[in-house]
Design a protein around this nucleic acid. Structure first.
Length: 262
DNA sequence: ATGGTGGCACAGCCA
C-alpha cells in the first residue's frame, strides 16, 4: 500500500482555492494539510473538495491563521488544540487517517527575536513538545507536518550569513526544533538527496523566488515506523511559478507499507 | 533600499 501525504501553506484559501484544486487533481495525494487558510471553519469550501474526491476537516478563524486537512479517506478523532492551552489562534489539527496519525501545524512566525510574538512562539513550541510526546505514545504511525517557521540548519537558508540569528533561524528556535526531533522524529526530507538550496518558502518582496532567496521552513517529521516506510520526500516548486501564488510551495512525502491487517 | 509584496479588510496588522 502506498500513501502520499503533503503540506502547503496557501496564504488564504479564498484566494488560492483554484491552485489547490488544480494541484490536488494533478498530484492526487492521499492527504493534503493546509495552513493559513485565513477563513472560519464555516466558510471552508468543503463542497469544492468533495467534488474532486476529498473529505475535509477545518480549524479556522477570521482573518488570520487557520488549518485544515483534506483526505481521500475517512478523517477520524480530530483534535483542534493542545490540552490545557487556551490559544485563540487556530494552528493545530491532528487526526487519524487509515491508521496513521497526522498532526498539521502552523507554528507561530515569531515576528522578531526578543518580541512578544517570539516569546509566544517559544512557549508554543514547548507545549507542542509535550503534545507530541503524548502522540508518539498513543500512535504507532505518526506524521507531524506543516509550516514550522523554523529553518532547521544553515543548509536550509539561502544566505545564512546575511540571515544570521534572525527569527526563523535563531538558536532558541532551532534548539526547540531539535528537542522535537529528540522525541523520536525525523526531518524526513533529509533522508534523501536534494540539490543544494532547496527551499519551500520565498518572500514576496525583493523578487525572492526569482533569486531563489528562500528558506526551507515547511517540514515533514516522521516517527520511526513512518521514516522506515518513507520512499520519497520532495518540494514541488511548480505552484510557486503560477499566477498569484502562495509564498510557500507544497512539500510531499511518499510511503510504502507491506500489506498488513488492521 | 530602515524598504520591498501580498492578504485581510478597509487602517493597520501580519507574514
Amino acid at each position: 500500500m502506498s500513501v502520499k501525504i503533503a503540506t502547503w501553506n496557501v496564504n488564504s484559501l479564498k484566494v488560492r482555492l483554484p491552485h489547490v484544486l488544480e494541484w490536488l487533481t494533478a498530484n492526487k495525494p492521499d492527504v493534503l494539510v493546509l495552513q493559513e487558510i485565513k477563513q472560519t471553519s464555516d466558510a471552508f469550501p468543503a463542497a469544492a473538495f468533495s467534488a474532486v474526491g476529498y473529505q475535509s476537516v477545518a480549524n479556522g478563524q477570521k482573518t488570520y491563521n487557520g488549518v485544515a486537512v483534506v483526505s481521500r479517506f475517512e478523517i477520524s478523532d480530530p483534535v483542534f488544540e493542545f490540552p490545557d492551552f487556551a490559544d485563540p489562534q487556530r494552528r493545530v489539527l491532528a487526526a487519524t487517517i487509515n491508521g496513521t496519525r497526522v498532526v498539521n501545524l502552523y507554528i507561530p512566525n515569531g515576528s522578531e527575536v526578543g518580541s512578544e510574538k517570539y516569546a509566544y512562539k517559544l512557549g508554543w513550541l514547548n507545549i507542542l513538545r509535550d503534545f507530541l510526546a503524548g502522540e508518539l505514545l498513543r500512535h504507532q504511525r505518526l506524521v507531524v507536518l506543516g509550516d514550522f517557521n523554523i529553518a532547521p540548519t544553515d543548509a536550509d537558508v539561502y544566505d545564512p550569513e546575511g540571515w544570521g540569528d534572525a527569527v526563523l533561524c535563531s538558536p532558541l528556535e532551532r534548539q526547540a526544533l531539535r528537542e522535537l526531533l529528540a522525541l523520536g522524529l525525523t526531518d524526513v526530507f533529509r533522508k534523501f538527496e536534494h540539490p543544494e538550496k532547496s527551499f519551500s518558502w520565498w518572500d514576496y518582496r525583493a523578487a525572492g523566488f526569482r533569486r531563489n532567496a528562500g528558506l526551507r521552513i515547511d517540514l515533514i517529521l516522521t516517527n520511526d515506523a513512518m521514516t522506515g516506510a518513507c520512499t520519497a520526500c520532495y518540494i514541488d516548486k511548480e505552484p510557486r511559478t503560477w499566477d498569484r501564488p502562495s509564498d510557500h510551495a507544497p512539500v510531499i512525502a511518499e510511503f510504502h507499507f507491506q500489506a498488513t491487517t488492521i
